[in-house]
């Protein structure tokens, strides 16, 4: 049984294997972008989130699910209740069984999760040449340096291959993807999506916006977390100061 030998496998055989990998697929360091959400007081940019959601809907959602995000969560993007109802109603979900025991289709409600493009993982694989398009709900948390990584991946496609590299059918070369050979075709290019708010329509901007949106999707409570943290730490600092005074006062009579 192969699992049983995993430890010895790690110790002994990883050595030659990973050096081969390193030779073939080293990725350069991921460039850092300026994000409104970084830093202790960072917040999400609602306009960027809306643009990112548009990209997700129009491009990513044709292959990638996002099943941990619900329509009602879109409130954080600045949509009101009616807008969210309208967005949800554009999708239909299977519900049931009803009183007759039949499944039926109905319009999605704000309480429903984003509708997945494929009924199951195998269908997703079959439609994508055997490669599974992962769920995007947690993508920026599931990759090291996630927000920058998504931006780098979106902008990292190269038409010109390094010398001696050959791609098989359905493979693309991406500078930042582990092993460089990725099954996802370049999803974004300049002017491929039209923005209504006058933002420039470049690949770089698209990459920033989709990454912004995915960062929010993975970490929806980030703003609340940082706000709470500020209050908690401020309180603790004052409390610590008071307690230090108490301690000094109590100890003052013994030295």
């Amino acid at each position: 049984m192969f699992v049983r030998n995993i430890l010895s496998a790690i110790i002994i055989s990883v050595a030659p294997v990973s050096s081969v990998l390193a030779a073939g697929g080293d990725t350069p360091p991921i460039p850092s972008q300026d994000w409104s959400f970084s830093g202790p007081f960072g917040t999400y940019d609602k306009a960027a989130l809306q643009r990112g959601y548009k990209i997700y809907r129009e491009v990513c959602a044709s292959c990638h699910s996002m099943k941990r995000v619900r329509f009602r969560n879109l409130e954080a993007l600045g949509y009101n209740e009616d807008q969210i109802k309208a967005i949800a109603a554009e999708y239909s979900v299977e519900d049931g069984p009803n009183e007759d025991g039949d499944m039926f289709e109905r319009a999605a409600l704000p309480s429903d999760a984003f509708i997945s493009p494929f009924p199951n993982d195998n269908a997703a694989k079959a439609a994508n040449g055997g490669a599974f398009p992962p769920d995007l709900s947690l993508m920026t948390k599931a990759r090291a340096n996630g927000s920058n990584y998504v931006h780098a991946l979106m902008t990292g496609y190269k038409d010109k291959l390094p010398h001696g590299v050959e791609l098989s059918d359905g493979q693309y070369w991406n500078t930042y993807f582990t092993g460089n050979k990725i099954a996802m075709a370049p999803p974004l290019m300049d002017e491929s999506i039209s923005y209504e708010d006058g933002t420039i329509e470049t690949l770089d901007q698209y990459a920033k916006d989709i990454s912004h949106f995915l960062t929010w999707a993975a970490d929806p409570y980030m703003e609340e977390r940082k706000r709470t943290g500020f209050k908690v730490i401020l309180f603790l600092l004052i409390f610590a100061g008071v307690m230090y005074g108490v301690k000094r006062r109590i100890w003052s009579n013994i030295h």
Partner: peptide
């Protein structure tokens, strides 16, 4: 309390 300050920095930030 001092220890919790460091702990809170990780929890919240």
């Amino acid at each position: 309390i001092v220890f919790i300050i460091f702990y809170a920095i990780f929890i919240f930030y």
